[in-house]
């Protein structure tokens, strides 16, 4: 099958971080996985060894994919086999994300995030003051 060509004149990225990729050119298989514990704390106390991913179910439970049951035929023709982009401007690419210029075959990406907020117990008088302020 005749492939299309991607042509990008200008790419401008500020940050590529946490196992992210900028792929220029064709690829065949891409598998991306990102697991993150997002912890917000009112008091900034963080120990270096905290966070055990296996103790949270979200990181191990399967994400079901529904199979395509509908009968489906597909054909394509490329009268103009060129994808042209003048400029790509991205500030940040993060957490196993991908910028891909070119063709691929099988792409599979997965993200699992557990979000935990830890707040201080609020004293009674402060709550009262806030309520008055809102009125």
């Amino acid at each position: 099958m005749l492939q299309r060509t991607s042509c990008v004149d200008n790419i401008n990225i500020k940050i590529v971080s946490f196992a992210s990729t900028v792929q220029l050119g064709d690829s065949c298989i891409i598998n991306g996985l990102s697991t993150a514990l997002a912890v917000q704390r009112e008091i900034e106390v963080f120990y270096g060894n905290e966070g055990n991913l296996s103790s949270y179910r979200i990181f191990s439970e399967p994400i079901p994919f529904l199979p395509i049951t509908e009968p489906f035929t597909y054909s394509r023709q490329n009268p103009n086999p060129l994808i042209k982009v003048n400029k790509i401007d991205i500030i940040g690419i993060s957490s196993s994300s991908l910028l891909h210029v070119g063709n691929s075959r099988n792409v599979s990406m997965e993200a699992r995030i557990k979000h935990i907020r830890q707040l201080q117990p609020t004293p009674r008088n402060n709550e009262g003051a806030e309520e008055q302020g809102q009125k």
Partner: peptide, 10 residues
């Protein structure tokens, strides 16, 4: 582009 996201030109 974050959390296993994808930008594909192709």
């Amino acid at each position: 582009v974050a959390s296993s996201s994808l930008v594909l030109v192709g």
